[in-house]
Structures are given as C-alpha cells and as structure tokens.
Design a protein around this nucleic acid. Structure first.
Lengths: 204, 204
DNA sequence: TCTTTTTTATTGAACGTTCAATCAACAAAA
DNA sequence: TTTTGTTGATTGAACGTTCAATAAAAAAGA
C-alpha cells in the first residue's frame, strides 16, 4: 500500500512500537525484528527512516521528553505569571501525567536512564531534561525564598518527584498518581511555609 | 597458580569485575570476556563458578544489596531501641554510604533497576529491598505519628532517598552525599515536627 | 481516457559480526 | 597419580544492516 507522505506515520508507529517492545521484553530484547513486527512493518524500514536502531532509540527518547515538556506547558500556560505555588503544582502534575503514566512509557524512561550512562547522545537529552526541571523549580521558589533556600527546596522537590516516579515504576502495583501528587504537594507547601518573612505571593 | 580454596576468591574477583565492566561500558556491553579480562581470568571460569552469566549478574546484585543492608545495620546497632529520629538518620546515612558511593556501584544499581523490570529473579531481590526500606521507615515513624501519617511520611522519605540517589547517579558531577543527607534530614525533621501532640521521643 | 514511465515505499533473505556457553586439554598442588 | 583449577578455541544462535527485487501510486505522455 505504498503512498506518499508515509514518513511521519511510520515514524510515529515505530516509536510507539519501540515503547511497546521495551514494555514487553526490556531494552536488551527489543530487537529490530520485534519492534518492526509490533509496528506491522518489516525490519528494514527502521534503517530507512531512522538510519539504524540507535536512531530509533534516540527518536523515542526525544518523543518522550517532548511529551513531558508539553504536558507541563499545557498546565502552566493558563496560569498567571506570578503564582509560584500554582506553577509548581502544574510542574508536579505534568510530571505525573507524563502523557499517560502507562507502563510502556515508564519502563522506557527507566531503560533510557540506565542507557544514558553510557551513550553520550542519550545522556545529553536526559541531562537537559533534569536541569530544566531543577531550573524551573528554582526560579519559582526564588520568588518566595532567598537564593540558597530556593536551591535546596528545588533540589529536594526535584528529587521527590523523580523518587516517587522511580518507586512507582518499580512497584508491581504501579504508580499511584494521586498519592504521589499529594506527597509532592505536601513537600512544596512545607517549603513555602518557611517563606513567611520573604514575599507573600502564595495563592489559595 | 591453581590452588585449593580458590572459589571464594574468584567469586569476589568476578563480582567486583562485573561492577567495573558495567561502569566502563554498561550492562549491555559487559560481556563475559570483558568481565573475565578485568578479573584477570578466562571467560570459561564464569560458567564454572556461577553457572553462567545470569548467575554472575544475580550474585552481583545480591552482593550490592548485602553491602547496603550491612551499611545500615552497622549504623543502627549502636543506637538505643527507642530513638526513631536517630534510627532514621542512620538509615539515610546507610543508604548514602552504600558501601562506597563509587561510580561503579551506582551505575550497577541503575542497570539492575532497569533489568529488574524484565527478570523475575532480579525483580524479587529489588522488591524485597524496596519494601524493607519502606517498612523500616514506617516502623520508626509509627513511634511518633498515627498510622496514616506514618505511612505517608515513610513513603515520602523513601522516595526522597531514592530520588536524591537517582539524580546523583545521573548527574555528571556525581552524588553530593552531604547535600543529599541534609535534604533527607530536613524532610525527616519536617515530618517529625508534626508529631507534637503524639509522643515526644525525639532526641537531641 | 488510457498507457507508459518515474518515484516512493517496502520487503525479507543474505551477510558479517558478536555473543555466551561448551569442553578437550593442560598445569599446579595434593 | 589424582584432584582441583583454569584456559581459550570452537560452536551455534541471534543480532543489526544491507540491498536487490517488487509493488503501488503519481506523473507524464499519447
């Protein structure tokens, strides 16, 4: 059924199939044949559209990061500019949306975390994402707390988010999003409670 | 140089070499030849002592878990029985000692986390460890807080510990142990501060 | 409208590489 | 001489990549 304009369709299919394959069998056993079968195409097509398996894996990680960024952005763009608490709650919510907190995405994240330790291209992507989470939080906390305290709070909340997410990924019963959000909100409010003498920008 | 009683020596060498290989090249490229070379022995010896590569990997994870358990135990055994804050600080310290927070151990942990998603034997080991951290924290918080609050606090502190550790593992500059401990201590103290009306067992 | 040609999309068998596991052969110690 | 420990070449399975072959769609020509 060859038609023109298949490239974006195939790319989406293959990226989706990559996550499914990693969910099914893990990154180590996500072979090109397996991924292609899940996408309903031939193995050769992967090299055609992504230049090889590595290209597909990198594109998959990019997609996940893009989805995460969008999930956060969607929630933040409706907020007023000066509302640090709301913005940080939006960041928390966005991280636990993660464009569906489904098993496949969660497992793929974890696999890429491990891989990024030994693949420069993946590490860059992953590091940019880490820094962005921290910087965004830091900037928001900075509106309520002095610099040093803001840095600490941002580091703590970033760790809390990733930790909740990691433990959710590893738990057989999966991630309890409501519980995770609640724990992160609580940490956030604890930190903001100490901003009494600083500025009083907390809303609702 | 064949001598009797080589088994425990070789096992230690090979487990150590496995972590070094994972540090150097990642789990995917930690081949038996590479591991054997690092240990200064032949590849065949792995099957001889561990029944195969999988056996060696499982033994390596067991070793890491054992070291972690010991690091915590060492710090707790000198404490009085009823001192929840001290015990939890000991648990935090133990988790960030992790028998040397060296790069090799950190990378191996992360690799096993990812693998445990698809290998039943590794998942069991990993799950037992996660539950133990949570249960220990829960038991300690229970001495200062009502059941539901204790569960939440334990879940939050466990996530904080793992999150700090994960972000430390991924950061190019490595894990800043003092900073991590401080953030975990702060979280602990925040949670204990709410135990005013409950029991007053906080020490120093 | 009906060919013919060109372009785009795809397949899957073949190839070369890499890996873990095996095992016959060997060496030092008992 | 027997036992224990070790080697490393060999084996077969599995992998990613390549590419000649093919088929459908689009474009060009009649």
């Amino acid at each position: 059924m060859p038609k023109v304009g298949m490239e974006p369709i195939r790319r989406r299919q293959l990226i989706q199939a990559t996550m499914e394959a990693i969910d099914e069998a893990g990154l180590a056993d996500a072979t090109v044949v397996r991924i292609a079968r899940l996408a309903g195409v031939s193995a050769g097509i992967i090299s055609h559209y992504f230049g090889g398996k590595d290209g597909l894996l990198e594109a998959t990680m990019r997609q996940i990061l893009k989805d995460l960024g969008q999930a956060v952005h969607e929630r933040r763009k409706v907020l007023p500019e000066h509302a640090p608490r709301d913005h940080m709650r939006a960041i928390i919510d966005g991280n636990f949306d993660r464009s569906q907190v489904n098993r496949a995405v969660v497992k793929t994240w974890l696999a890429f975390w491990a891989s990024s330790m030994h693949q420069r291209s993946l590490h860059r992507l992953q590091h940019v994402n880490d820094r962005r989470l921290y910087s965004n939080l830091c900037h928001q906390f900075r509106q309520c707390l002095p610099k040093q305290q803001a840095r600490e709070a941002a580091g703590g909340l970033a760790a809390m988010i990733d930790g909740l997410w990691l433990r959710g990924a590893l738990a057989p019963e999966g991630l309890d999003v409501d519980r995770a959000c609640k724990l992160a909100y609580d940490y956030l409010d604890e930190k903001l409670a100490h901003s009494a003498e600083h500025t009083a920008l907390r809303n609702a």
